[in-house]
Design a protein around this nucleic acid. Structure first.
Lengths: 341, 341
DNA sequence: AGAACTAACGCAATCGATTGCTAAAAGTTC
DNA sequence: GAACTTTTAGCAATCGATTGCGTTAGTTCT
């Protein structure tokens, strides 16, 4: 049968070992460690003490198998829309940090899962592997349909993203349309007339921000300029060529709405390097309000998303869903932070 | 015995179900899915296809229990030295992102574990819970002794941190002393004479950077100024009061070495708000070279740590240790990036 | 044809913890 | 002291996958 697997010297302690030491059965140890009142307090204390001094901790694989619960939340970053393999956008990183804080704060573990170029059944595979009790998805990427399909049969799922049509999964996010509209209106109010939009279509949130941008133009009686649109990715490296291409196209513009702060900062740098001045000649507004925005030169005007609240809300909703409740999606109203651009 | 646990309708598929469908035993299904050549190719394909169409995926809890392997790496962020509960420093976040990329790139899962105000036995508990096959610790925090104790009996462990005395665990990091020395020498070469150090003692990396700073002063024949030292934390919120206190103390200084970029940027802002000019009056140098450094105003001069290489090295070493090999620690030579401060 | 092999696959034990049922021990009541 | 209740704790099944050993059927050789 099975051979001695690993652990050469330092014996793996199991519950049976503690049971033997305490002179009771494993049932009793299990109940004692779980604080079950059918074991007298004195015995419970004695067993707990024994476990502590011997450094015994319950084996989580065995526990998860038996209980069909893992005490773990899966944190998933789908990168279907990005060629780049790395998690580099500070917004995503900060989101991961905050969600991890919220989850560990509730005593759960975090299983971090980056998914690049997903296969059709990737979500189901994650669910079926039974490694987590619930899933948080950071960004819809281009996986809207996969999420819809999953949501029909899998309840404990909350997605950070935009409010797009035909959405059947529970979502938390900002009102992207309103945010972009706000930003665009601000530039128009400053007298800008030819405003470019930087962002790679594909991710719903970018599409929605573009939608808000177009709305604001329309409301101001301005017609959108198809040539003033650059497919900037969400990484510094890939955004720069797009901005440069826009400059080189010879198109004239006096404002830029970027789909993210990272793109905005890249735009500022590229524009400045090309001899344009920000904000005198060209005004730039970002989206997210990552910490970088406050420190860029000049400080970036941007649309603020409240990540702290967003993360807390996501985790709240997820735990309610794990308990079987139904939950409504939540979209927060973003806020324009006017700084120097 | 055990009641119907969860899953009301959508049946949990198990290997036995696939076995029944295929008209074979679970042994055969297990071997087929594992690609075991003792099962004929045709049958293997047929079983795999059956599993795919029915959306069957191996239950990882059961697999881990049986194999005594979890196919998971634990990523641990100890926050013993910070009052703050949140993972906010961009350096840590970027480190998490890069490590996660490296680990998932090798087909392993990432279990993210933030540990605040650790109890004495926290590390052993994590190990004994058998949730991961190896541990990566991001930063020594104030847990040097705990790490030493663990390393004596637990092999698959790699720590990001500084090269401190009596260290028995495998470590990857920068030569913090050399980095800080370089930065300080640079400021001295620029004619700065009264250079302050900002950083909270407690974390070894900060101590080492302070050591390098003192070395450079000594080498230049300058005596250190005890009053020019502020215990800045690693978050924006807590670093600012320290800087302000330094300013308010009335001490004169013409240079600042910060223990991290976040502290440096905070210092610049606080100094500027107090009417001092950077770098004319006061020169500021940071440590880490996070992306923010490049975009701050003015762009931050800083000591660059190569995170990409660091993360890759850590994961490489860890996997070698998991396979039973012994490994040497690695300390990279940091590089001074001269920008505008 | 019979012996000697090999290929294919099933049996059943195992990983470690949980828990419904039940039995023994202890305590109450009349 | 009998009958009954309550307390305490063990038995054994269970979660789902893996794998050493053994069995059956099929080949090859003498």
């Amino acid at each position: 049968m099975s051979r001695q697997p690993t652990e050469p010297k330092s014996a793996r302690l199991k519950m049976a070992d503690i049971a033997k030491l305490a002179g009771v059965s494993t049932s009793t140890v299990s109940r004692a460690l779980a604080g079950n009142p059918s074991i007298p307090q004195a015995l419970r204390d004695q067993i707990s003490e024994l476990a502590r001094t011997h450094g015994y901790v319950i084996n989580q694989s065995a526990r998860s198998l038996r209980l069909q619960r893992t005490h773990t939340i899966g944190l998933i970053v789908p990168l279907g829309h990005e060629r780049d393999q790395l998690i580099t956008d500070p917004f995503f990183l900060e989101m991961i940090g905050r969600l991890a804080d919220e989850i560990t704060g509730r005593g759960y573990e975090v299983l971090l899962n980056k998914v690049v170029a997903p296969r059709a059944d990737w979500l189901r595979r994650i669910v079926q592997s039974h490694r987590s009790d619930g899933l948080l998805i950071i960004g819809q990427s281009d996986q809207h349909e996969a999420l819809n399909a999953l949501a029909d049969t899998y309840r404990p799922l909350v997605v950070w993203g935009g409010d797009i049509a035909e959405r059947r999964y529970c979502t938390v996010g900002s009102d992207n349309v309103a945010g972009a509209r706000l930003a665009t209106q601000h530039m128009i109010a400053q007298g800008r007339r030819r405003i470019a939009f930087l962002g790679l279509p594909g991710a719903p949130e970018v599409e929605l921000r573009r939608e808000g941008y177009l709305q604001a133009l329309r409301e101001a009686g301005l017609s959108p300029y198809p040539e003033l649109s650059a497919p900037a990715h969400f990484t510094i490296e890939s955004a720069e060529p797009s901005v440069r291409a826009l400059i080189d196209s010879g198109a004239t513009f006096d404002g830029v709405l970027a789909a993210s702060d990272l793109i905005a900062v890249t735009a500022i740098n590229t524009l400045t390097a090309a001899g344009r001045t920000v904000p005198d000649e060209i005004s730039v507004v970002g989206f997210d309000d990552i910490s970088l925005a406050r420190y860029s030169a000049p400080p970036l005007t941007t649309v603020r998303q409240d990540l702290a609240t967003g993360a807390r809300t996501m985790v709240d909703l997820l735990f309610r869903r794990i308990e079987g409740a139904s939950t409504e999606s939540v979209f927060m109203t973003p806020e324009l932070v006017v700084r120097g651009t």
